[in-house]
């Protein structure tokens, strides 16, 4: 049964999601931040965490974006194969939503048209859009505006299979250690393991959109998530990078089959806000 969806509906939802994600903390991140505030051992760390909580309150009450870097809009679109989009293209509809959201929400325009010539597009488009065709007649949209303080600290490692799980741990700890205060800790660490070069990076990005505090259904990966979170919080970086025990709020790992010759590991780092919001149309 084919279901018709007007692309105007996509535009309207993307617009609202851009504004919402930039002003209101996702519930899972709120819970993770509360847990960190309780466990933080450094007095300065606790002071920073309470500043961050106060910041979130001001953002929501006064409609001031949580962070001035309102990000490049990353959009995941899962399109049911029984959906028929009417009235224009998916890509144009998403970009129009971003354009309106960033204008009406007083969000910062942070996108340059050409990476070398660097002229600002002035409307924060284009978005980075990842589309997946799935069974069914629904449309699932996730908006994850990504700031570049943390994006710049993200890494990809093409490990050898012989490096195994220890190599993976080293890669993640190296990336997080190098990121330190730059990534606005406490951070969320999205890890991709497997696939090809580009698939691995995408796994890490998708891992960031997974609920903080949730775990991989694979027992050995769940154990790795827990062990890495523990080790990262032992690095001493702490809130704001000013020392402490709350360096990461979550480590989310997504995996995919890979080649007999490879062990790709991607580490996508996000700040404590880790903006993400999902709607199903």
């Amino acid at each position: 049964m084919i279901r018709a969806v007007d692309v105007k509906e996509i535009t309207e939802n993307i617009k609202e999601m851009c504004i919402e994600a930039n002003h209101f903390l996702a519930p899972d991140m709120g819970r993770a931040l509360e847990r960190a505030a309780v466990s933080e051992k450094s007095p300065l760390g606790r002071q920073i965490l309470s500043q961050l909580k106060e910041n979130l309150k001001i953002a929501a009450e006064d409609m001031i974006p949580i962070c001035q870097d309102t990000g490049m809009a990353v959009v995941f679109a899962e399109v049911g194969q029984d959906v028929h989009l009417e009235g224009g293209s998916l890509e144009d509809a998403v970009n129009e939503g971003v354009r309106r959201g960033y204008a009406e929400g007083f969000l910062r325009k942070s996108v340059v048209r050409d990476p070398l010539l660097r002229d600002n597009t002035k409307d924060n488009t284009p978005a980075v859009i990842h589309t997946k065709i799935v069974p069914g007649a629904r449309l699932k949209l996730t908006v994850a505006p990504k700031g570049f303080g943390s994006e710049n600290m993200s890494r990809i490692f093409m490990l050898k299979p012989a490096e195994g799980i220890e190599g993976v741990k080293n890669a993640v700890l190296t990336a997080v250690g190098d990121a330190g205060p730059n990534a606005c800790p406490p951070m969320v660490v999205g890890v991709g393991i497997g696939g090809t070069f580009e698939k691995c990076a995408l796994l890490a990005k998708e891992a960031l959109t997974r609920e903080a505090g949730s775990h991989s259904p694979l027992p050995h990966i769940k154990a790795l998530e827990e062990e890495l979170l523990d080790q990262i919080n032992g690095l001493g970086i702490g809130p704001g990078g000013l020392g402490g025990t709350a360096t990461a709020l979550a480590v989310n790992i997504n995996t995919y089959p890979t080649h007999i010759a490879g062990l790709p590991v991607a580490v996508n780092i996000c700040c404590h806000v880790n903006r993400h919001i999902t709607r199903v149309i």
Partner: peptide, 18 residues
């Protein structure tokens, strides 16, 4: 450089304790 010295203070060589 506080970033260097502060992290040292809370570093646990055998992992954290959260």
């Amino acid at each position: 450089d506080l970033y260097r010295t502060a992290a040292e203070e809370y570093r646990h060589s055998e992992g954290g304790d959260q």
